[in-house]
Every structure is written in structure tokens, then in C-alpha cells.
Design a protein around this nucleic acid. Structure first.
Length: 758
DNA sequence: ATGATGACTCTTTTT
DNA sequence: GAGTCATCAT
């Protein structure tokens, strides 16, 4: 710890030096509620960290008396490390510093019995959730076409995000979904979770919230405990988290929330920007500090980001400024298709690398997870090292989840979801029929599947072959359970994978992925060694769905815009700025203006990740779930300030100047070939003609009128040739092409066949 | 019980 | 184009 007397002597402790006036204000106003409205790159994490360190260093509170909540594990980790280094105090592990979920688990374990759970409850993943919903759906015989398990789970989760237990959902609202039957499923879902002694992610907060609400003494305990509360990324809190925080903060009222309304990008998960606006009402006399000086980006980047975000209404209105140079122009590049875009990004990356830029300082930020693949493939061919952050995560892989289910079952025999998962993996001749017998008994005698299985092998319920197989399995699990005490858990895991035949199953598999899966299983056993005990490990896995296997090599980062929050890079590529993809069509369809504005905030987040250089691109054509789709540039491109932008284009895509194209446009028929002067080609020619009028016309057309094409009409597309319109959805046509199969295209890229000059 | 075949949906975004 | 689901043949 920092010596207090030293602090008082010079008045300013070393960790406070270099803070500007507003930052200092936010750090030092320790008593009473504080809301820090901090723009991107204004050092808000630093403020929060320093504030925490300051509270501890000045002896205002002991470490255990401060609650610091973050949104991501990464943010929590970073904060821990920074505070630890400021205070030179290594025992941060035991502090109340972590994600909402991690903190909630800790509280819930202590009071689980109050909501009908054991303190050893399991935390289940999406996969288990989905299986549970499927079961319940089957029992309720709801039309599964109209109510797919995913949507049902979505509705349940939204209720949970709003802090509503089944009793809490109003009758009218319950009725909204399948006449109340989804609400019924929510009830039985919660009931089953209790029976399984399990929680899903939403429950962690929901249950804790319920405990606070129904046991004032428990809440009072926490009030006494926490003298200070700090919250990061406050704009992303959902209602449940908000209520949870508000209850806790009503104790000492020394709450400090840091957030940026312009970076609220989790509305779909129930986050409410309104929580920021409500802060001053909830905590009368709250002090509001604005951080508007940006230390991260160049002037141009900041201007671009500000210009885009200014198109949103209903902002709290911050004006970011910087003393930094204007810096490089932002670049906007139009390309023929996704592949060309990936090639472009690859080449630019190589060129930056030649100029000596570290690959760690380069990021490709995409809108959807599926977009990462194109870049991966390109980087692979070019031999550029890359990492995909947040993609298919280690612990979400099939083989890892299976292996984890074995471990869960051995750890706790009553984990029925785990039992279900592994009973016939690898195949043991115990299919749905056998499992359903076990299910029946379990239900009858109200016990777990494993216990029911133990009973059943003593009877003739199962056919002899199945009975024998089941008995073998039960005996194996019992043996592993008995070994649990006296064997180091990594060894036990090894043994389980070996004896269950699961490892062998993959070793014998000849598919391409199998080798990787075997390696992953080995890595899992290694990871296990880093934890004290099996339960410790399992909890870590459920909360921190991530491995920290960071290689030392310099690598380009590829990730979604959501995943990039809180990060910064020297160079940021922002591909896929196309209408429909970004802003995402679905977001707009479902949420209207609200959805569009959230997309725009996403653009803002993306741009502000860049320190020196932002390179935006869009593609005219893109492969989307199998078929091709064409699109026009994103409206966000037009919202960029022209004076800070350099527009570049490949021939035929966007405005002049012309450049040599990369290897032509696809195979065979290209734009150039079309340019032979047949009557209908005027339209195509105007593409390569220089100005972007056509794109503008197209944009106008989209907003003003229908496509003008009809079903059954014969048409011509520049890339795919002749075809027949099979359906029309506004501007989107589905065309079955003579040579290229069925594709979804925009009408702007199509001309009537007779005009194309057969 | 299992594996092969074909129809179908789907991708936003995450703790 | 992949992953899931239902159906059918083994």
C-alpha cells in the first residue's frame, strides 16, 4: 500500500499525476453519488481504476469494502492488474472486483437456499438451456414452427433481463406470447432449474435480486459491507443489473458510474441507455462529471466519429476534442465482392507491416461473426498471423463441452443435463428409447437421471443389451466418483477421457477436424491443472468462457465490433459497410429507428477504436448463407465528413479514379465483357463510367419506389448472367440464374433481359 | 439403434 | 453452405 503520510505531505500522490482537471475531479470526489459521462478515449478506465486505488490508498475503505463491477472479464482483469500495480498490493484476488455475473455468483452461493437452490448449484450454458426448452416445448405441444426453442428462450431471457421472475410478469404481458403459454413454459423452466439445482446466466442476477428484495437483512449486510461502489460501462446495464445496483448503492450512496451513452450497443440484450439518464433522479444531488478530451485518436478520426454519431437523436451530447494532430485522412474503399475486400485488407496489412507497424496494432472489426472467415482465409494464404477474438470459443466447442459434461457428472452425479449429454456419447447403444425410460423413472421417483439409471439397471425395464451397456456406464461413473478424492484432478480427467472411450472416439475419427479436437481435449486437461479443484475449474469455465492462451507472436486481431469495445489499435479496418449488413437489416426491421441508432453507435465505437488510421470498405456483392447478394454502400459512409475522407474505388464499383482490377471480376463474364455497346449495357457502362451517380440513383430508388421487377420476369445480372425472377421482396429479388443457381440480389444490379441484348 | 439422405432455416451482436 | 431435424433403410 502507498504510505498515507507521504501522500498528505506532497498533497498529490504519484498515481494522480498526469490526470487532467475533470479526471482528477472524478477521481477525488469520493463521497456521494457520481456519474462520469465519458466519451471514447477519454481515459475512463484509468479514472475508475485510479479512483479505486485512491479510495484504498487514502484509507477511506478497506479492499473488502469496495465493490467494483465491470462488464467483461477482460475489463475486470485489467482493472485488477492496474490497481494491484498502483498499490503494489498483490492480494486483489479476494476483492469484490469482477463482472456482474462473477459478483452475483459469489453472493448467490452464500444465500442459495433462499431461492430453493443448493450452494453447489451448477451454471448451465446455452446448449443446456436450449435442450431444456425443447423438452418443455414438447410437453406443452406448442406449434414448434411458430415457436422455435430459440425464440422461446429469447422471450424468457428478456424477462430475466428485466428482472422479472415468472410471478413478476404482468398478466397482460404474459398473454402477449402465444396466449400465455410461453409464460407457462417460463414457469416450468424455472421449476426444472430448481430441480436440477442449476442456474442460467440470467438467473445469477435475477435470484440475487430476488434475495435482496425479499430479505432486507441480507441487503442490509451488503449495505454495511460496501462503502463504495464503482461501475464501468454503465450504459450497458440492463434492467435487472440496474435494479440490483440501485439496491446495493442505496446503502452508502457512494456510487460512481462511468459510461458513454454513445457507446451503448447492447440494447438487444436488454441494456437501457435510460439508466444513465435516470441516475440523477435515483441519486439526488449526484455530481456529474464530463470527460470530453480524447487522448486516443487523431483529429480526423475523431471528427469522423463525431460526424457519424451526430446523426443520432436523443443523445446526452458530449463534444469530444483533442489536441492531437489532424493525422491521416480516413480511407473509404469500394470493392467488387467480399473476397476482393479481404485481398485489399491483406495487402494493406502487408504494406503496414513493411512500414514497420506491429501486427498487434492492427485490427479488423466486422459486424457479424460470420464475416471473420473471409479474412482468416486471406491471412492464412498470405501467411499473416492473426487471432480471432471471441469467435468459436474454446469452451464452446463440441468436444470440450462433451468432456466437460463428463467432468460435471463425476463432480456431481445429480447433474442430469450432463448425464443426458454423455450417456450415448460415444455411442453405447443407448438411444432415445433407453433414455426416455430413465427419464420416466426419474420423474416418477423425483430424482436425478443418474440415480434413476442406477435403479433401472437392477430391473428388467431395459432390453438386455441396453441394460448391460447402461450398467457398464453407471459402474464407470461410480468408479470415477470414488477416485475423485485421492487422485489429482487432471489425472482423473485423463482417465475419464480414456476409459469412457471418448478420446478414442475422436482418435478413430478420420475427418479433418478430429485431430484438432484431440488436441483440444489435451489442452483442456492442461487447463484443469491450473485450478485448485474440479468444482473451481467448472465454475471458472461457466463464467469465463475463454482461454487465456495468448501466444507471444505478434498478430492481427479479427473481431466483431461488439468485441472491440474498450480496445484500441493504431490501425483499424472497418469492412462491410453496406446497407443491410451494417446497418444491419434485421436490427432496423425489428427495432426501427432505435435499431438504426444502435447500429450507428456501433459505427462510432468502431471508428473510435483507431488511434492513427481507419480504413473503411464496402463490397458490392457478398455471399450470404449460400447465395450471392448485392448491396449499396452503407448510409454511414455518407455521414462521414468529406473533408477528412479519401474515397478510392475499384473499377465499376464506385466513383473514379479507375484502378487496375484485381484479377478481373469473377470468372468468364465480367463488366468489361459487357461493355460492348449492346443497347442494354448503358446501365452497366455507367458503373465504370466514373461518377457515383448510379449508386446515388440506386439509393434513391430504394427509398422511393419498388423494384419494378415482377415474378417470372426474365432478367440479366452483370455477374451471374441471365435468370428468372422467382420472388420479389421490395428491392430484393431472388433470381434463379441459368448458370449460377439461385441468388438473392438487389434490383439495382439487374436489367430486364430484353434490354441486355440477347 | 444407427447412419444416410434430403428439406429446411439461418447469422446480428454476448455475459 | 452449414448445421439441424425428420424420415427412411439398414
Amino acid at each position: 500500500m502507498i504510505d498515507e503520510s507521504q501522500m498528505q505531505n506532497d498533497g498529490l500522490s504519484p498515481y494522480l499525476t498526469g490526470l487532467n482537471e475533470s479526471q482528477m475531479d472524478a477521481v477525488q470526489t469520493t463521497d456521494g453519488p457520481v456519474l462520469v459521462l465519458a466519451g471514447a478515449g477519454t481515459g475512463k478506465t484509468r479514472v475508475l481504476t485510479t479512483r479505486l486505488a485512491h479510495i484504498l490508498a487514502t484509507g477511506k475503505a478497506f479492499p473488502g469494502q469496495v465493490l467494483a463491477v465491470t462488464f467483461t472479464n477482460k475489463a475486470a482483469q485489467e482493472m485488477k492488474e492496474r490497481v494491484a500495480s498502483i498499490l503494489n498490493e498483490p492480494t486483489v484476488e479476494r476483492w469484490w472486483l469482477g463482472t456482474f455475473h462473477a459478483i452475483a455468483v459469489r453472493m448467490l452461493r452464500a444465500h442459495a437456499e433462499k431461492v430453493g437452490l443448493g450452494s453447489d448449484f451448477a451454471i448451465i450454458d446455452t446448449d443446456d438451456q436450449l435442450r431444456l426448452v425443447k423438452q418443455l416445448l414438447k410437453e406443452s405441444n406448442l406449434d414448434d414452427k411458430k415457436w422455435p426453442p430459440k425464440s422461446v428462450l429469447g422471450v424468457i431471457q428478456r424477462w430475466k433481463d428485466r428482472g422479472q421472475t415468472p410471478d413478476h410478469v404482468s398478466a397482460s404481458e404474459a398473454k402477449e406470447f402465444a396466449g400465455g403459454r410461453i409464460h407457462k413454459i417460463y414457469q416450468s423452466y424455472q421449476q426444472r432449474m430448481k430441480e436440477l439445482n442449476a442456474c442460467d446466466f440470467g438467473d445469477l442476477l435475477l435470484h440475487t435480486l430476488v434475495i435482496f428484495q425479499t430479505y432486507p437483512d441480507v441487503l442490509a449486510d451488503y449495505h454495511r459491507r460496501f462503502h463504495y461502489i464503482l461501475v464501468d460501462e454503465y450504459q450497458d446495464t440492463n434492467v435487472a443489473q440496474y435494479l440490483w445496483l440501485r439496491l446495493l448503492a442505496q446503502g452508502h450512496q457512494n456510487v460512481c458510474c462511468v459510461g458513454d451513452d454513445d457507446q451503448s450497443i447492447y440494447g438487444w440484450r436488454g441494456a437501457e441507455v435510460g439508466n444513465i439518464l435516470r441516475f440523477e433522479k435515483d441519486f439526488p444531488g449526484a455530481k456529474v462529471v464530463r470527460l470530453e478530451r480524447n487522448y486516443r485518436s487523431t483529429g480526423r478520426i475523431l471528427a469522423a466519429a463525431s460526424s457519424v454519431i451526430s446523426h443520432n437523436e436523443g443523445r446526452l451530447g458530449k463534444t469530444l476534442w483533442t489536441d492531437d494532430d489532424e493525422g491521416e485522412m480516413l480511407r473509404v474503399r469500394g470493392l467488387w465482392d467480399g473476397e476482393a475486400e479481404a485481398r485489399f485488407v491483406g495487402e494493406e496489412t502487408e504494406s503496414l507491416q513493411r512500414q514497420g507497424q506491429s501486427l498487434d496494432q492492427i485490427a479488423v472489426l466486422v459486424r457479424t461473426g460470420a464475416m471473420t472467415r473471409e479474412f482468416e482465409e486471406r491471412f492464412l494464404t498470405l501467411g499473416i498471423p492473426y487471432r480471432v477474438i471471441g469467435g468459436a470459443r474454446f469452451y464452446e466447442r463440441l468436444e470440450i463441452r462433451d468432456a466437460l459434461a463428463y467432468l460435471r457428472l463425476v463432480n456431481s452425479a445429480d447433474d442430469s443435463l450432463a448425464f443426458e449429454r454423455v450417456i450415448n456419447t460415444p455411442k453405447r447403444g443407448l438411444g432415445p428409447a433407453a433414455v426416455s425410460v430413465v427419464h420416466q423413472l426419474a420423474r416418477q421417483i423425483e430424482t436425478s437421471l443418474f440415480k434413476a439409471a442406477q435403479e433401472i439397471v437392477e430391473t428388467d425395464e431395459l432390453r438386455p443389451a441396453a441394460r448391460k451397456s447402461m450398467a457398464g456406464f453407471v459402474a464407470q461413473v461410480e468408479r470415477w466418483q470414488s477416485l475423485k478424492g485421492d487422485m489429482p484432478h487432471p489425472e482423473l480427467a485423463d482417465l475419464i477421457l480414456e476409459e469412457s472411450g471418448y478420446l478414442e472416439f475422436w482418435q478413430n475419427d478420420k475427418s479433418v477436424e478430429a485431430k484438432g479436437r484431440v488436441e483440444n481435449l489435451r489442452e483442456l486437461v492442461n487447463a484443469l491443472g491450473e485450478f485448485e479443484s474440479l468444482p473451481d475449474f467448472l465454475e471458472h469455465v461457466s463464467l469465463v468462457m475463454d482461454t487465456n492462451s495468448q501466444q507471444n507472436q505478434e498478430m492481427v486481431s479479427i473481431m466483431t465490433l461488439h468485441g472491440a469495445k474498450g480496445l484500441e489499435f493504431e490501425t483499424v479496418f472497418l469492412p462491410g459497410w453496406e446497407e443491410g449488413l451494417f446497418p444491419n437489416q434485421r436490427a432496423m426491421d425489428e427495432q426501427g429507428l432505435k435499431g438504426l441508432e444502435e447500429e450507428r453507435r456501433l459505427a462510432y465505437v468502431g471508428l473510435t477504436r483507431a488511434r492513427e488510421r481507419a480504413i473503411i470498405s464496402f463490397a458490392a456483392n457478398r455471399r450470404m448463407h449460400g447465395s450471392w447478394a448485392s448491396a449499396i454502400p452503407s448510409r454511414f459512409v455518407d455521414e462521414l465528413p468529406h473533408e477528412h475522407i479519401e474515397r478510392e474505388s475499384d473499377r465499376g464499383i464506385y466513383s473514379a479514379p479507375l484502378e487496375p482490377s484485381y484479377g478481373g471480376f469473377g470468372s468468364g463474364r465480367g463488366w468489361q465483357d459487357n461493355d460492348r455497346g449492346s443497347p442494354g449495357m448503358q446501365r452497366a457502362r455507367s458503373y465504370s463510367g466514373g461518377e457515383s451517380q448510379l449508386v446515388r440513383q440506386a439509393a434513391q430508388k430504394v427509398s422511393e419506389s419498388k423494384s419494378g421487377f415482377g415474378r417470372g420476369e426474365r432478367v440479366f445480372h452483370q455477374k451471374f448472367g441471365y435468370g428468372l425472377v422467382s420472388s420479389v421482396e421490395g428491392e430484393r429479388l431472388t433470381i434463379s440464374f441459368d448458370k449460377a443457381g439461385s441468388k438473392k440480389v438487389l434490383s439495382n444490379f439487374v436489367v430486364p433481359a430484353e434490354k441486355a441484348g440477347m
